[in-house]
């Protein structure tokens, strides 16, 4: 069973960066790390390949400047190899272009049985890329998976819903987006970290994937930011240190609000 996992390498969420006032894109400084949201898909893929008793996990990522720190983390967890799309022409790409690039990169890996993604990235969080990839590859999909079990050429997926969850059966190949927190991502072992350094990484440009640079990045984006403004800030509240009677402040306030 061969599984492709789409992973995003993002700036450390502890340091979210800022908008460039000129280009209105996110200015990313510092090293990129594996989006934590993607670590669950990587873990899920490794478990599924283990359970199938064969096959491998391939990573697919799009990142500026051939950044591969996050990919190495996922390779150290146990993924076999990676495709990294990196090209200056990709700057300013919208989610649809990102999905087009990832779909081509997935196709480049062969014919995977399953494509896993996060439900959304932790920095851009459009949440549309998984479904866009599925449509571009003409595959069925299940979003917001809590669990995945593969039986023969079918995946049984528990999909989160407003009310609880649905059991969904989907024939493979398929695209499944994995919800954060549903598995415990393994920590890379020392051996894994060392092995990751020599695992194959296929670095490609948009031209390698058959795109014209006019189709991607700024040129291909179907939307643009026309204004950036400060949101209305909430008025500063009263902040008090709990001296043992802090609870009374809350009671008084709730009474003042007439909710008790």
């Amino acid at each position: 069973m061969n599984v492709v996992v789409c992973v995003k390498q993002i700036p450390d969420p502890a340091d979210p960066g800022a908008l460039d006032p000129e280009t209105k894109t996110l200015v990313r400084t510092g090293k990129l790390i594996l989006d934590e949201a993607d670590s669950y898909g990587v873990e899920m893929a490794l478990q599924l390949v283990d359970a199938a008793g064969g096959g491998e996990v391939t990573l697919v990522s799009m990142a500026p400047n051939e950044e591969q720190g996050g990919l190495r983390t996922a390779l150290a967890m146990g993924a076999a190899k990676a495709v990294l799309v990196s090209d200056d022409a990709l700057k300013g790409s919208d989610a649809l272009t990102t999905a087009k690039v990832l779909a081509k990169a997935i196709a480049r890996t062969g014919e995977p049985d399953l494509v896993l993604t996060a439900t959304e990235s932790s920095d851009g969080y459009t949440g549309t890329v998984p479904e866009q990839i599925a449509e571009l590859l003409s595959l069925p999909s299940v979003t917001f998976a809590k669990s995945i079990a593969v039986e023969g050429s079918t995946a049984n997926v528990q999909r989160q819903t407003e009310a609880g969850y649905d059991d969904v059966q989907v024939p493979l190949p398929a695209v499944v987006s994995v919800t954060a927190g549903v598995v415990e991502p393994r920590y890379p072992s020392f051996k894994g970290i060392m092995a990751a350094k020599s695992k194959p990484l296929d670095a490609v440009t948009v031209a390698d994937l058959g795109f014209d640079s006019a189709q991607v990045g700024w040129n291909g984006a179907g939307q643009e930011i026309i204004e950036v403004s400060e949101a209305e800030a909430r008025e500063a509240g009263t902040i008090v240190e709990d001296d043992g009677e802090g609870f009374q402040k809350v009671v008084d306030y709730l009474a003042e609000l007439k909710v008790i």
Binding site: L96, Y125, T143, E162
Partner: peptide
């Protein structure tokens, strides 16, 4: 709406129309 099914519809529709989605 940004709901489970809503996001599925928007993603698929975006590809079908080759149109960008403004999200959130």
């Amino acid at each position: 709406a940004t709901s489970y099914d809503g996001r599925d519809v928007a993603g698929r529709l975006s590809v079908k129309l080759d149109a960008s989605v403004i999200t959130n």
